[in-house]
Amino acid sequence: MLSLTCPCCGITAEETEFAPGGEAHLKRFGPGSSDEAFEGYLFARKNPKGVHFERWRHAYGCGKWFLAARCTATLEVFGTYPAQTTQPPAELIAKIKAKRPEWEGWA
């Protein structure tokens, strides 16, 4: 079972109270960008077996979006943090590195 702690309301709840929103920290490529960049923005997604940064919404709770780092294989959640964050917080990255020394890192 996947349990997440919503950083907006502080509630820890199980997966069915949330709605997944796909990969986090995507950079938007819109008008004026190259076809390749736009295609990548629309379609290219990471699909790791391991550490993944994701968007989630506390759909049945406070209704707010937030970001989470979790392992796609074990469902271990390393941390959750506000949606108004353009890249994973340094402390979170350090925490994941300590737990998963083999992890290739973010970006």
């Binding site: 709840a13 069915t16 109270e17 759909a59 049945y60």
Partner: peptide, 8 residues
């Protein structure tokens, strides 16, 4: 605030 079966 949570889920009651299938509704908020």
């Amino acid at each position: 605030r949570t889920r009651i079966a299938q509704v908020a």
